[in-house]
């Protein structure tokens, strides 16, 4: 479901960097030969690349910020919280993420994940190495650590994200109850 990814990217750029950047990126995409003129962005990934170039930011940082931003969108945060009762449980069950995504959006290709754990460290391995997804996932984990109130160190190794959990209850996590608010369906305003 490319259109959903494109829209998420567009909304991310708009929320963090403003309408000006979105327009600039969209115009650039159109000039670069966007035959498909309807969606303002050609693809989310290309748009992220263009935005990173304009902002002189490393791509990795842009994708990570996107992942972290996603966890602040209430409906998405809720879906992520359904996958684990605490931060450690969430990480250990990240293996289910591609399957969960597939249940809802069969065309969304999230790389398969394998989770290993030893002591306070957890490794999330991308079985189909993909830089962009790896950075997005790292950002997602960072955002969810905040959400659960956990203190951890996240580092990237080649096609692996390493999470060292220092304190699972470092801060009060954000509230989560099974019963969502009536407006919970709408991802973006």
């Amino acid at each position: 479901m490319n259109s959903l990814i494109n829209r998420a990217v567009e909304e991310f750029l708009r929320a963090i960097y403003g309408e000006g950047l979105v327009q600039a990126v969209a115009d650039e995409a159109a000039v670069a030969g966007g035959v498909d003129a309807l969606p303002a962005m050609d693809t989310g990934a290309a748009a992220m690349g263009r935005a990173a170039f304009r902002l002189s930011k490393p791509r990795s940082e842009m994708f990570e910020d996107l992942g972290a931003w996603l966890t602040q969108i209430e409906p998405i945060r809720r879906l992520l919280r359904f996958s684990g009762r605490d931060f450690r449980d969430f990480l250990l069950r990240l293996e289910e993420l591609p399957g969960r995504a597939h249940l809802v959006l069969p065309s969304l290709q999230i790389p398969r994940l394998q989770v290993d754990a030893a002591g306070q460290s957890i490794w999330v391995v991308l079985l189909d190495p993909n830089d962009s997804w790896q950075f997005v996932l790292a950002g997602l984990i960072r955002g969810m650590a905040d959400d659960y109130g956990a203190l951890c160190l996240i580092s990237a190794e080649s096609s692996t994200i390493r999470v060292d959990i220092w304190d699972e209850q470092f801060a009060k996590g954000r509230n989560f109850c099974l019963q969502g608010s009536p407006g919970a369906g709408r991802a973006f305003a």
Partner: peptide, 11 residues
């Protein structure tokens, strides 16, 4: 999970 995810996607 499915219920919320579907609702979000449909919206």
């Amino acid at each position: 999970f499915l219920h919320e995810a579907n609702r979000g996607v449909l919206t």
